[in-house]
Design a protein around this nucleic acid. Structure first.
Length: 584
RNA sequence: GGGGGCGUAGCUCAGUUUGGUUAGAGCAUCGGCUUGUCACGCCGGAGGCCGCGGGUUCGAGUCCCGUCGCUCUCGCCA
């Protein structure tokens, strides 16, 4: 590094080759060990730690003795070899230390609100003092990981011929999707901008503009309640879109990108080979009860309904015979289930009930046939289960109800019995999403209203429940990383698709005017996706919580405790915006 | 909006099940001692609206009701 008034070297550079040279370091006092006539100081910069010493006869002794931890100093001194027996093998600079000759206090720190080396701090406190929290090693490495991941993504996308384009932050509200964040307009009294939930419409407009391959590391704003893997306020997507593309081409590009990125940052992990497996939506729901299966768990539900049609025990009769609301009987075979205790089965039973199941039956085969269902199931059913494992849970319910608890059961069994494969990233595509789903008796878009129905115009004359879309998700270890679709670029198909969801032509024109207008003037077929960057980093950093990989996240109430946002604004400010508050 | 968990010193937590002396520990902090530590050590001190409000009781950190905050989750997330 180049020398300046503060420092001649970074901490990490110093080793025994520097012995007897004079150096200047600048950084934070991480730790002091006061031995009376000598003080050991751990000086920390962004690269590492170096131990410095000062003797009582030094004129700066008093200055350091009184200095609080995390104060910022520039020190000058000689690099000396540590006495034998005092070498610290754990430290990169452990063979040497700096004998301080000069000290300059650059910024004195007040007493800290928490101890820097503590790593089980409450999140509220960490967010309030995020600048200190980020100073800790763990958070420094997450900041760096985030930077490196995004840098690599940019490189890969550019190598593949994608061009980054910025799209507006102040745009208009759209009726579909999540709640919008809204910004009042001073120049247009009574009107509001919305922050984009994603650059969806802009990227499609760019396709019409003749951009061939677009990408952007794009902020997305959705005013929705949070989850462990869902950030409040803003999150980032690798937003991408390609003209004249097929679903397979998009899969290929993202598979290559994911494989490269995950391999680079977690080389010790096993990563799904490309092409990633594809699971049609319906199959995923049937086997896992979710469209976000965690494939590290090596078992799934099997549909045994057909084996109950002839010979059905009484407890399942209502499920099989209900004419309007036909149900399914599924078995979840698990190796080693016979070894589980009564306590375990009680716990699982409770979990199933908490998630809406009436009960959770099971059958075990070792050392002999037993369990609450043992006497009720036919030989045929028993044999079908026994082929797969020594025991199984059985669930029987309507398809709708099953979805509520199938995955929670699967997840909990896997946790309790330690069935989640470690050291691996298991990717899969979920394909063939339904175009519509029924909500309160009305057909609604199940995912993205701009997706192309499979079969285009012809498909839209089918029963809405039968219509599949060119719509896909990429899932990794049970986390949804990406949603994407081949888009609907045909006006006639668009109007018809919206009509099924209850939109009149005028409504569509009003709500999506820009895009529909654009599609009148030559729109290429196109498609894309938008991997969640924060979720990728969360997986790479092995954090339980997405806020751990976001430098300055909001809390669950959408507040920034450090900056005190959101905040009230002055009457003058409000007046300018033509806003009167209803404080009732 | 619903459900679960948590809330005690600056920080992390014990104490709450079964109400009963002056509410404890580690770290941080302050004072003293300490020349080879590296989460240094030793001695001493200060630091508490037990989230808040109400109730039961001779007596509440502990029991009851309400409320607020944080967190996980369901709804929600085209």
């Amino acid at each position: 590094m180049s020398k300046n008034q503060y420092r001649s070297n970074y901490c990490i550079e110093l080793n025994d080759t520097y012995i007897n040279s004079k150096v200047k370091l600048a950084g934070w006092i991480r730790k002091k060990r006061d031995h009376g006539n000598i003080i050991f100081i751990d000086l920390k910069d962004h690269t590492g730690v170096v131990q410095c010493t000062i003797n009582i006869d030094n004129k700066n002794f008093e200055g350091i003795d009184n200095l609080s931890l995390e104060s910022v100093v520039s020190i000058e001194g000689n690099v000396i070899a540590r006495p034998t027996g005092s070498i610290n093998e754990e430290l990169a600079s452990g063979k040497i230390e700096i004998e301080i000759s000069k000290l300059k206090i650059l910024s004195k720190a007040e007493i800290l609100p928490f101890v820097m080396h503590q790593n089980d701090l409450g999140e509220e406190l960490r967010l309030k003092y995020r600048f200190l929290d980020l100073r800790r090693d763990e958070m420094q490495s997450r900041l760096k990981l985030r930077f490196e991941v995004i840098k690599m993504i940019r490189g890969i996308m550019e190598d593949k011929g994608f061009m980054e384009v910025q799209t507006p932050i102040l745009t208009s509200s759209s009726p579909e999707g999540a709640r919008d964040y809204v910004v009042p307009s001073r120049l247009n009294p009574g009107k509001f901008y919305a922050l984009p939930q994603a650059p969806q419409q802009f990227k499609q407009l760019l396709m019409v503009s003749g951009v061939n391959k677009y990408y952007q590391i794009a902020p997305c704003f959705r005013d929705e309640d949070t989850r462990a893997d869902r950030a409040p306020g803003a999150f980032y997507q690798l937003d991408m879109e390609m003209a004249f593309s097929t679903q397979e081409e998009i899969f290929e590009i993202l598979e290559d990108l994911m494989h490269k990125v995950f391999t680079k940052f977690r080389p010790e992990m096993k990563i799904s080979n490309t092409p990633f497996i594809r699971i049609p939506y319906k199959e995923s729901i049937l086997k896992y009860g979710t469209d976000k299966p965690d494939l590290r768990i090596n078992t799934h539900y099997h549909d045994l309904t057909h084996l109950f049609l002839q010979d059905c025990p009484k407890i399942f009769e209502s499920v099989i015979n209900n004419k309007d609301n036909k149900g399914k009987i599924l078995a979840l075979p698990i190796k080693g289930l016979s070894k589980q205790t009564r306590k375990f089965f009680d716990k699982m039973q409770k979990l199933a009930q908490d998630n809406g199941a009436v009960g959770l039956g099971y059958i075990l085969f070792e050392p002999e046939k037993r369990g609450p269902l043992a006497k009720l199931l036919s030989e045929e059913v028993c044999n079908a289960i026994r082929e797969k494992a020594d025991g199984a849970f059985l669930v029987a319910d309507t398809e709708e109800n099953l979805k509520m608890y199938m995955n929670p059961i699967l997840q909990q069994v896997a946790i309790e019995m330690d069935l989640i494969e470690k050291q691996t990233y298991k990717f899969c595509w979920i394909t063939d999403y339904p175009m519509y789903e029924k909500n309160d008796g009305k057909w609604e878009f199940s995912h993205n209203p701009f997706s192309m129905p499979q079969g285009e115009m012809d498909a839209l004359s089918l029963d809405p429940s039968e219509i599949k879309a060119y719509q896909y998700d990429l899932v990794c270890n049970g986390i949804e990383l990406t949603s994407g679709a081949i888009r609907n670029h045909r006006l006639d198909v668009m109007y018809k698709a919206f009509e099924i969801a209850g939109y009149a032509k005028e409504d569509v024109e009003k709500e999506f005017g820009a895009m529909l207008n654009a599609f009148k003037y030559g729109a290429p077929p196109h498609g894309g996706a938008a991997p969640g960057i924060d979720r990728m980093i969360m997986l790479l950093a092995d954090t339980e919580n997405i806020r751990e990989v976001i430098p300055f996240p909001l809390n669950q109430q959408g507040q920034d405790l450090m900056m005190d946002a959101p905040c009230e604004i002055s009457d003058k400010h409000l007046k300018e915006l033509n806003i009167k508050l209803d404080k009732s």
